[in-house]
Design a protein around this nucleic acid. Structure first.
Lengths: 218, 218
DNA sequence: ACCTGAACACCGTTCAAGT
DNA sequence: ACCTGAACACCGTTCAAGT
């Protein structure tokens, strides 16, 4: 079998989607490719580099979805961000590494470009633009990674973001925590994607409200 | 040596602080406690349970800092959230697991209670209260975890949040990405704690602006 | 009841050997 | 030039044996 980087990344993505509750090993990857477990070292320096390459692909897909969408800058940005979380959940073992931010390829870089584009369209400039980008990108990546981690770790977890964010209060006596106790059921009913949406909405609300305040009669 | 859960958690926290760039193993933990590597299984079901217990302690400290602080609800909440990130950076191998949210002890639960308290003080109720809590808590935990992960993975990383969020664009030709290219230096200059602050500020701005709109003449 | 230590089933990674 | 496979240095975890 003659390998190249693209084939290996393809195989890794396939495994990530088909075996969502297990970490990908070189052994498993070699089996899928019909190749020895150590053959990948000819093409990637180590597993981290391979994982990042796979992540770059996923990030590129999310950006494509954003670029293909229409509507206001906010709608398009939200499409991109929702797709980011969905793909992290669909490829959990890749998405779990998503908090790693250094752009390694065209997917990562075009994602940054797209987010800056949308936020620039909202009217933000310079330092404010970068602050908004940092807030949104930081949230989207780290929270997507957390959602993916949950799927990876929990063998029965669904992959649509419907996993409860808090699944149990264990044996904790909640009478000492009146507000937790009061909202106990609502907290347990909240799923991962709801938390994700709440964060995205809050940050984008802040961006919009700031813009509305800056130009009141636009 | 006679162990108990508290001693083991103490030892784990000590190792996490003293050896910030290595994952904690049972072997290393056993050495630190003068005990066999497998002795911990008498007290914790597995490593995950132990790690969560250590995380519960850190979370408790962050909450104590919030409770001990004074000022507006926003100032107190920000104190708590900044302390959450600082502690994740101080104990990287523990903080890196921070995206795990299920409350396992008094630290976790009192943190939820404190956040709900501060947001209730801002005037939020019911569904809006929970949405704001979800956004803030989700961001703080997952982004803190990402910051800790960065320290853990990078042997030369500082632990004060001053690591660049994006450390390199590698060999990517940025001429295809005009906005990235334009803001290249500013992006590379942005550190992890700046990203964290940006997210927290944006979400809390949204909470405040919503409140200001709801009661315009308060 | 609690700690020990051998053992198991893995990992990622290196490197000399093959083709 | 690229893949193989043995080998290394680890991991978390189990379990029979000690005390």
């Amino acid at each position: 079998m003659r390998l190249d980087r693209r084939m290996i990344v393809d195989a890794m993505l396939g495994l990530a989607r088909d075996e969502p509750h297990t970490r990908i090993t070189f052994k498993r990857l070699g089996e899928a490719l019909g190749v020895d477990a150590t053959a990948m070292y000819r093409h990637f320096r180590n597993k981290d580099e391979l994982t990042r390459a796979a992540l770059d692909r996923i990030t590129g897909w999310a950006t494509d979805a954003g670029r293909a969408s229409s509507g206001s800058w906010r709608q398009r940005l939200e499409t991109h961000l929702m797709r980011t979380a969905e793909l992290a959940l669909e490829y959990p073992s890749i998405g779990a590494e998503g908090a790693i931010i250094d752009p390694v390829g065209p997917g990562d870089t075009s994602a940054v470009e797209f987010m800056l584009e949308m936020l620039a369209e909202s009217g933000l400039r310079d330092a404010e633009l970068l602050r908004a980008y940092a807030a949104i990108s930081g949230f989207a990546l780290s929270q997507s990674s957390a959602l993916a981690h949950d799927v990876l770790r929990n063998p029965t977890a669904a992959r649509d973001g419907s996993e409860p964010w808090i699944s149990t209060f264990g044996s904790i006596n909640l009478t000492e925590y009146p507000l937790v106790n009061e909202h106990r059921d609502a907290l347990l009913a909240m799923d991962g994607m709801t938390v994700y949406r709440a964060g995205i909405s809050a940050i984008l609300d802040a961006v919009e409200m700031r813009q509305a305040a800056a130009r009141p009669v636009a």
